[in-house]
Amino acid sequence: MTVFRYPPFYSYPPSFTLQPVKATREKQLKLWCDLVLSYCKHYKIFKLSVTDSANSSLFANTAIDRKLSLAAVEEVFSRLVSMGYGEWLNKEANVCLIYWRRPYEWAEIIYDWVERSGKRKSILTFYEIRFSEDTAEFEFHGIDPELLLRSLQVLESQGKCAVFEGKTNDDLGVKFR
């Protein structure tokens, strides 16, 4: 996997200080949100922990000796969630699902694969969708199970499938019409 290329604002010192002027702060937050989304997309990261990521190179640039404060990082996450690009999985643990693709977009991709590979009218396990060799070259390979659930629920609401548990197992599976 290639190294992620940071955008120019990542090398600009004042980007790491939360701006007081509202209009400027809006622009700043948008730049940070875009960075989070493209970073996660590049490295196929589906969820982030606020505290862990605050100390990672995502929000800290050692080359210019600047890092985003925890409060600022929380602002960025709040913004992501409010724009619909994230969802809190566990508010206490501050873990957030990152929607560099929204659930309905995942739903479309997965359903497309289901149709093309002739998997309709069959039963699939979550594990199968996430890790089988069949899906190796698709973007949803390795997808976070929570995110997969949400995406399949979108399809469910469209009547395209049903998510259910086994009789003796509580692992999840899905049946496509």
């Binding site: 039963i123 699939l124 049903a162 259910f164 548990e165 086994g166 009789k167 692992d171 599976g173």
Partner: peptide
């Protein structure tokens, strides 16, 4: 989702 489906899922799991 029938009972049969669930059993099938068990097998797959």
């Amino acid at each position: 989702v029938s009972s049969f489906d669930r059993e099938l899922l068990d097998l797959k799991i």
